[in-house]
Each structure stands twice: as structure tokens, then as C-alpha cells.
């Protein structure tokens, strides 16, 4: 198990975030710092990672667990390198998100909430991401992929595979 420790650069970022709030209100930095930690430590939050965040912000570990388990963007289990988060709420549904989800399932051979055996892809269905006018859509990493069609999904999968091979 690798030691959970932010780089110097990230530690400075934490300091910068904490400085946004009044003295003693460093708990406010919790969600931004958890985002940083999730990015830095493999795309998910292990108990060790959360304990590390707790110690950085001088919080009780339970305060971190409570928050991390509340918000849907924090992954508490390992996920694939590329996570397809496909919206399935009303506006996307009326624009055909059901078919897109089925297509991704058959294409990757996994169900919702599962990861491909090579650890590359995870499929997740999510609730409204605020791109209703550009439906159907999914979130991939930091960005949205909108106006999805089966052909576009194929392109995205190929793009991810190429990126993974390059690394």
C-alpha cells in the first residue's frame, strides 16, 4: 500500500483553499480537498485517504466519512480509468438515454455499476447533470460528452482505448 501523502504542489493548493475561509473554519475546505484527494489517489477515496484528509484539516475522521458518503461524486470503491456517467433523468430519457445506456452495456459487456475486467471502463447511471438541451449525454472525467449516438459512443470508447495504450 502506497503511503497516502499529497505532493508539495497539492499541499500548497490545500493551503490556498483553507485561506479562503475565516480562521478556524477550515472544515469548509473539506469538499474541495476531497476532490483533490480523489484525483491524486486513484479516482476513489479509501479509508486511509479520508483519514489523511481528516488529519490535514484537523477534523475527526467520522466528519470526513459522513461527508464523503453523502455526495454522489465521491467514489468509495475503486473505479475504472474511464468512468462513463450516463444521465438517465427525464429530459435525457425523452431524448433516448435508455438506448444509449443499453448500447454501452452491450458494447463494453458490463452492467450498470460494473467495471470491465481490464479495469479500463466503469459504467454508471447518474441523475440530471444539467445538460438537458444537449441530451443524451454523459460525463467523462472533467468534461461532458453531449448529443450521444451509438457512433459517438464508439468514438469515445476508441479514444479512451487509444489514450490508455499511449500511457
Amino acid at each position: 500500500m502506497a503511503v497516502v501523502q499529497f505532493s508539495e504542489e497539492k499541499l500548497n493548493k490545500v493551503k490556498e483553499i483553507v485561506a479562503r475561509y475565516p480562521q478556524g473554519k477550515q472544515k469548509s475546505a473539506l469538499i474541495p480537498v476531497l476532490h483533490l484527494a480523489q484525483e491524486a489517489f486513484g479516482g476513489w477515496l479509501s479509508a486511509e485517504t479520508m483519514d489523511y484528509v481528516a488529519s490535514l484539516l484537523q477534523l475527526e475522521p467520522i466528519e470526513v466519512y459522513e461527508v464523503a458518503t453523502f455526495y454522489s461524486m465521491f467514489n468509495l470503491k475503486p473505479v475504472g480509468t474511464y468512468m462513463f456517467e450516463v444521465c438517465q433523468t427525464g429530459p435525457c430519457m425523452v431524448s433516448g438515454s435508455d438506448q444509449i445506456i443499453e448500447y454501452i452495456k452491450s458494447k463494453l459487456g458490463i452492467g450498470v455499476g460494473e467495471t470491465t475486467p481490464d479495469g479500463l471502463f466503469t459504467l454508471k447511471t447518474v441523475e440530471c447533470l444539467g445538460a438537458c438541451g444537449y441530451a443524451p449525454m454523459m460525463q467523462l472525467g472533467k468534461h461532458y460528452r453531449e448529443h450521444l449516438t451509438p457512433a459517438k459512443v464508439d468514438e469515445i470508447i476508441a479514444e479512451c482505448r487509444a489514450k490508455a495504450n499511449a500511457n
Binding site: 479509508a47 467520522i62 466528519e63 458518503t69
Partner: peptide, 20 residues
Amino acid sequence: EKREHGVLGRGDAAEIGTYI
């Protein structure tokens, strides 16, 4: 002196627990 348990999860999946 120190709270070690709390409410984890959200909605009807929320539970009292210690996480670990």
C-alpha cells in the same frame, strides 16, 4: 470528548455507523 459514529450515506440509504 470525541465523536466516533455518525450518519453515513444519503436518503433512505443513510445509516448510523462508524464507517470502519
